[in-house]
């Protein structure tokens, strides 16, 4: 199951509590500080993400839970699928560069700009159409710790 969501600045995100367990979702991130007292919010509530940046989400009832909302400055962003593939459709500017973000990316890899056009002299648009760009990270991904989610029945003291 995904735990990252990318939205454009100014988007409202709805937080319904769709299981039968209470959650107390919060964020202390600079881009958005909020909490949803779901205990009294049985009606779904929208949160507006008006500032660009990374919003780390937690749950005060289930401390191991972690999610992220990537709030993009521009509308030129996309989110990869589970195999790491993403497709960009854009009006052909000459030299588009992108940044990657993932909670497990090293800082250096988060700051690196990647060109979507492999050659700067590609005035021939034909060459650029439907090409595939592969990005190789310079650093290994940080540990996933996905095992935090794997085990059930650890205790009712969590």
């Amino acid at each position: 199951m995904p735990h990252v969501l990318a939205v454009k600045k100014g988007t409202q995100v709805l937080f319904p509590d769709s299981d039968n367990v209470l959650h107390h979702v919060y964020s202390f991130s600079r881009a958005k500080t909020f909490e949803i007292d779901i205990y009294k919010e049985e009606i779904r509530r929208n949160i507006l993400f008006e500032n660009a940046g990374i919003v780390a989400l937690g749950c005060n009832i289930h401390d191991w839970m972690l999610g992220y909302i990537y709030v993009a400055e521009s509308s030129f962003f996309t989110q990869t699928d589970s195999d790491g593939n993403a497709t960009f459709a854009y009006a052909g500017a000459a030299n588009v560069k992108i940044k990657l973000w993932h909670p497990r990316l090293d800082k250096k890899d988060q700051q690196t700009l990647h060109s979507l056009i492999q050659s700067d002299t590609a005035s021939d648009a034909e060459q650029a159409i439907d090409t595939e760009v592969t990005v190789r990270l310079t650093q290994a991904l940080l540990p996933s710790y996905s095992e935090f989610d794997d085990v059930h029945g650890v205790g009712n003291y969590d």
């Binding site: 199951m1 589970s82 990005v135």
Partner: peptide
């Protein structure tokens, strides 16, 4: 062809497990 729409596929080969952990289901 400045206005021609170009499509590119970006493959992030090292992000295979991009979404394999976490708590949320996003629609």
């Amino acid at each position: 062809m400045a206005l021609e729409t170009m499509t590119k596929v970006l493959r992030l080969v090292q992000l295979l497990d991009y979404f394999r952990y976490g708590l949320c289901c996003v629609n």
